[in-house]
Amino acid sequence: MKIVVCVKQVPATNDAKIDPETKRIVREGMQAILNPFDTYAVEEAVQLRDKFGGEVIALSMGPEKAALVLREAISVGADRGLLLSDRAFGGSDTWATSYVLSKAIEKIGGVDLVICGKQAIDGDTAQVGPGIAAHLDWMQAACVMEVCDADKDTITVKRMHEDGYDICEMSLPAVVTVVKDINTPRVPTLKGRLASDKSEIPIWKPEDIGAQSSKIGLDGSPTRVVKTAPPPIRNSVTKKITGTSAECVKELIAELRLRSIL
C-alpha cells in the first residue's frame, strides 16, 4: 500500500500565555510544531504500512523550515518526505493548497491512500483533506476513528459524527482524515531520529508537479481576507463565589437566574 500522509507545520500553543487583559492567547514567540492531528495521521499510515507492506511518504507544503515536520514524521516511521516550497505557493487558501497537494500526489504516482489529520490547529478549517479528494475525484472519509479493514482495492473505516458513528467501505485510492481516537502515536526511537537526520528532503516547485500558476498562491485562491480583528473581549471581571457548598449552590443559582439561564 502506497500511502501519502499530509502534514503541516503550525505554531505551538504549549508555551502560550494568556493575556490578562483580553484573556486570549498571546501568540508571539510561539514555537513551530507538527500539527497535533497529523501525528495520528502519521501513526496510522505507519501502522497500515507495517500491516500491508508498501511505503509511507510524508508530504507538506510550507516554508523550507517545514522540512522539520517531515523529519519528525520520518523519525516515527515514514519512509521519506517531500516538501512543496516556493514563493508562488504563498498565500494559498484551502482551495489552492488542496490543489497543490493533489498535484504532488499525482506526481508521486500509484498512491493508494492519502491520510490527513482532521484539521490544522491554526486554520481549523478541516477543508484540505476533502479538498484533495475532490481535486483527485477520489472517495473520502472525514473524522475517521478506526480503520476497520483494508485490502489492495478497498478500505473500510468508522467515521465519528456528533450523534454517533457510521462504518463505510470505499474503493481505493481514497482520502481519509483522522481524529485522535484512532491510535496512540509512538515516540521516536534513537534509530528513527538518526534516520530522519540523514534523510534527504527533496523540494518540489510548481513546475515539478505541473501546477498551473492560475490555480496556486493568492491568484488561485478564491477567498480574500478582508480584515482580522481580536475576538470580542471577554468580561474581564471574574465573579467569585465562596462559602459552604450549600451557600455556593444558592448563590450560583441566583447568578444563573439573574442571567436568565434558569
Binding site: 482551495w95 477543508q127 483533506g129 475532490a134 481535486h135 472525514a142
Partner: peptide
C-alpha cells in the same frame, strides 16, 4: 457539522468556489 464540514469543501473545490 461533521457532515457539512466534509461535504461542502468537496462541493467548493469542484464548483471552483471559495469556502
Amino acid at each position: 457539522t461533521t457532515r457539512g464540514r466534509a461535504l461542502i469543501p468537496r462541493v467548493a473545490v469542484v464548483s471552483e468556489c471559495g469556502l
